[in-house]
Design a protein around this nucleic acid. Sequence first.
DNA 1: GACCGGATCCGT
DNA 2: CGGATCCGGTCT
Length: 197
Amino acid sequence: MTLTLEKSMLPPVRLGRAYFEQNTIALAQDLLGKKLVFGAFEGCITETEAYRGEDDPACHAARGKTPRTQVMYGPAGFSYVYFIYGRYFCFNIVSESEGMPAAVLIRGLRVQRPVMLHLDGPGKVCRHLSMDRSHNAIDLTLASDFYVTDLGLRPAFDATPRIGIRVGREHPWRFVVKDPHFFVGCRENPRVKKSVK
DNA sequence: GACCGGATCCGT
DNA sequence: CGGATCCGGTCT
């Protein structure tokens, strides 16, 4: 007897180096709907921003390589976690080829495990997952408990200028999943501990 | 060693 | 709309 597997029934495919090496703008769009696994947490990426190269004035690497931005110059698929405003961490995934400093900021996550909730904002994502400095410069293509998989979802999205920047406003490099049904079953604006300490 | 401003969030 | 609250980057 013949058995037909629907695409949705196939085991999720862990994304590897070649996937993250693509153009940062394309990657930021494509990461929408992908599943992020971080320890016990699992959730779909719902909002991203692209930061691309030394010519992008909003990119942390706009003034060249520094100790902080070094990971952005390395291979694609590594985490870039940085501290901001004295309180928050933000999580990025390095993109493109070695030598090209670029990354995708993960701004929104529809968490499905171990609870259902929607995290809207990069600081909230890291705060809820307890992601900090210790999770910087980790290879998401090799780590056993920190990676991204393809669920086969291709959610429609909107493009807008990036949030919280003073330069580089001309680029519509923020991407947000459009369909509100994508969030069904998730609590909005969860209350989590307010302090990063 | 000092100063400045930041890819944020929350309460007013 | 302002304050919180560190730190990286830059200048001295």
